[in-house]
């Protein structure tokens, strides 16, 4: 246990594998990421335009594809992995995702709810329109 193990900087690949295997591995990692991202993007555009998929399911499918592509970017481009030297980066990411979900889901639910409950009845709407 003489080696000192630090955490890894976000965006850095493990130094050991770089030293042992050189840059070709790095190129391979980015290329795999690019190919997967291209496949997912093409699928997204296909899903949005096809009539093969049940209409109301399309937005959910697109969301799933976007989440998958976000994962690809994080792992292959930003090198955020589940390794023990990456714990700090993953924890920060998890906190960020928590806040993002709170903001987006919270706002969407509250605004949809208000929209539904505060819509004036038709006669009041007519009054508004006349003045």
């Amino acid at each position: 246990m003489t080696d000192i193990r630090f955490d890894r900087a976000p965006g850095d690949r493990p130094i050991l594998t770089d030293r042992e295997e050189g840059t070709p591995v790095g190129v391979l990692v980015y290329t795999i990421g690019l190919v997967l991202a291209v496949i997912l993007t093409a699928t997204s555009f296909w899903v949005a335009n096809t009539s093969l998929i049940w209409g109301p399911g399309v937005p959910i499918g697109l969301m799933v594809l976007a989440i998958a592509q976000m994962g690809i970017h994080l792992v292959f481009f930003l090198h955020i992995t589940t390794g023990p030297d990456n714990t700090n980066n993953v924890l920060a990411l998890a906190f960020g995702i928590l806040i993002v979900l709170l903001v987006v889901v919270g706002s969407t639910v509250i605004m949809a709810n208000l929209n539904e409950n505060l819509m004036p009845p038709p006669e009041v709407m007519n009054l508004h329109m006349q003045h």
Binding site: F6, R8, A9, N89
Partner: peptide
């Protein structure tokens, strides 16, 4: 930790 890690973590 080395400065590279601290800087990149802060930027993250």
């Amino acid at each position: 930790a080395p400065k590279r890690i601290v800087v990149a973590y802060g930027f993250w």
